[in-house]
Design a binder for these strands. Structure first.
Lengths: 331, 331
DNA sequence: ACGCCAGTTTGCAACGTGGCATGCCACGTT
DNA sequence: AACGTGGCATGCCACGTTGCAAACTGGCGT
């Protein structure tokens, strides 16, 4: 059994309470006592029991990060940064993977981790706005990534519409005229794809170009395989595009691979822009032009909001994190 | 405040203990009682307090996964699988990121999460075998990935030496004669690189080729950037290799990019083999030949060992997970 | 009628910690 | 000499849960 306060107290010849005071850095402990107690702590290898502490003070020091997939590079990078930022604030991150499953998301939203964490950072995929509104769980929640019916919930995201518009405008500025949008999600409740599509259309409109349905390409999910398949279809169809705005870097990398499969030169014949600025895109051949969201910023802002909510009930806010267009070789 | 057992008990008109019995599926509860209690639970939205439960039973249902970096694709994929496998067993995974920092690893090894988790899956990077042997923390520990001085600790890994030998032999079998090994870590305590080097040398020896020092290429870390830089050096040096065995896929993807930068055709002029079978390698151009470790198997086996250790003290074992060579386009 | 048993329910205690209020002491002030 | 004050140490209790063992119930065999 691990040593407890009591053991340390006996060893040091003081009361349990005094040991507790030392452990918690309470002000009024005589230096000599403190030293003696500390020596006993070290000698016995005492470590506070987190369960007991949690039970007593009602806080766990844990934050849940709920994401569709850890092994999707964007989320992996976001998770890595979140863990780092949280660590600097004395918080530990618990990662929950939903696989984009609506049931799983619902569970987590309605308090599956309720008693275990002090806050939830939630990157929704399939969950409906109504579900969010119906939430009764008192644990602070911050949404990551865009969401439409901002149903009275904090959220942190970059301006997806503006970012998509910039990306598309960048392609148009280089003289491309048949710019496809790859990543439409017809049946998904996910707002991200919708907003990126909106930005794409805005850019076309601003350039005086009509939106052409056959250039708005749907996909199943947002992985390399989906980008690969969709790009093959696009290239094999009658009138291929001269540029493609992919809604994620993974899609773009799949598309890049598809271009290679068909012997289509990138960026000469088809330019590509991705979204997310994942590490892979820097080393692909050619390197991927992409929208780069400030992931550190997102993590910081989200944890700020959680802390604020934990301190006192605060009116929900939508917070916009910075982004920029990272121009590389595919455009 | 959340409702507690007591509130449910009052609502249902039974004792606290009976509610607890219902919650825990205790056998001897009359169907009628169970139903009534369940109704009260639902009505009040009761959820067990995990801190109290943990305090009482001494188990948390948490497992720590300690890895250098979440956003390194191999670890991301391993983490994703571990979370899934653990979830199926009713366990929650807590991810700790060490950034390969020896201090951080030491902390975690010596019980930083001691009171918070039931077990630790530890993928060491910088920590010395002596450190492992000196461990006194009673929490079950399983090492992931190879480690030399198996200092009385369970570990689960593929056979790195054999895998590296196969990869190198595969390159030699296609007629390559100047096969470089990219990923040596001169100053690292990390055993993985050492073992992969050993396998590489074995394969050379079996083919009757001498080990040439200038073909054994050191790197700082194992990322794309390191592979990129090392490959540039290799290509720019006097006698470039006709094949490169990279100790990780990330290194290989960086190397692939470097080959493109120098206009060197892959696999015509230089063949490449990686290690880890990360998703990116399937969609790179050309697609990466790689050693594919059974990541699901590793996660399963590691959690098996943790469970075994938790049940009773067991003599440490080294468990070998399967792997295979996945031949694609770079070789 | 009695005891026994399987089935069902219950009260008590304890897990290890921190909040609270209070006690104690030495010292300086009135 | 009595008093107040600030510094320090302590005991008691509650946080919400479950293990333990006892207690109650009704049916059944003797």
């Amino acid at each position: 059994m691990n040593p407890k306060l009591r053991d340390v107290a006996e060893h040091a010849g003081v009361s349990v309470r005094t040991v507790s005071n030392v452990v918690n850095g309470f002000r009024y402990v005589a230096p000599a006592t403190r030293q003696r107690v500390q020596a006993s702590i070290d000698a016995l290898g005492y470590r506070p029991n987190l369960a007991a502490r949690t039970l007593r003070q009602g806080r766990t020091g844990l934050v849940a990060l709920v994401i569709p997939e850890i092994d999707s590079p964007y989320f992996a990078e976001l998770a890595a940064r979140t863990v780092r930022v949280a660590g600097a604030r004395g918080l530990t991150v618990l990662i929950d993977q939903t696989d984009g499953d609506a049931e799983r998301e619902k569970e987590l939203l309605h308090g599956k981790r309720s008693q275990l964490v002090d806050g939830v950072l939630f990157s929704p995929w399939a969950v409906a706005p109504a579900e969010l509104a119906a939430r009764t769980d008192p644990v602070p929640l911050v949404l990551l990534g865009e969401h439409d019916g901002t149903a009275g919930v904090d959220h942190v995201a970059i301006d997806n519409v503006a970012a998509a518009r910039e990306a598309t405008a960048h392609l148009l500025a280089s003289g491309r005229r048949r710019v496809a949008a790859l990543g439409i999600q017809p049946r998904s409740l996910n707002a991200t794809a919708r907003q990126r599509l909106a930005g794409y259309r805005q850019a076309l409109a601003e350039a005086g170009l009509p939106a052409e349905p056959e250039l708005e390409v749907p996909v199943g999910r947002l992985h390399r395989a989906d980008g690969h398949a969709a790009m093959l279809r696009l290239l094999d169809a009658g009138a291929p595009p001269d540029a493609v705005f992919c809604f994620t870097d993974e899609l773009a990398l799949g598309a890049l691979r598809a271009a290679a499969d068909r012997g289509v030169a990138v960026p000469e014949s088809v330019a590509l822009v991705g979204f997310d600025d994942i590490e892979d895109g820097r080393y692909s051949v050619p390197a991927l032009t992409t929208v780069s969201p400030d992931k550190d910023g997102i993590a910081e802002l989200a944890l700020d909001r959680l802390a604020r909510q934990a301190a006192e009930p605060a009116p929900p806010r939508s917070i916009v994190a910075p982004h920029h267009l990272e121009v590389r070789e595919t455009s």
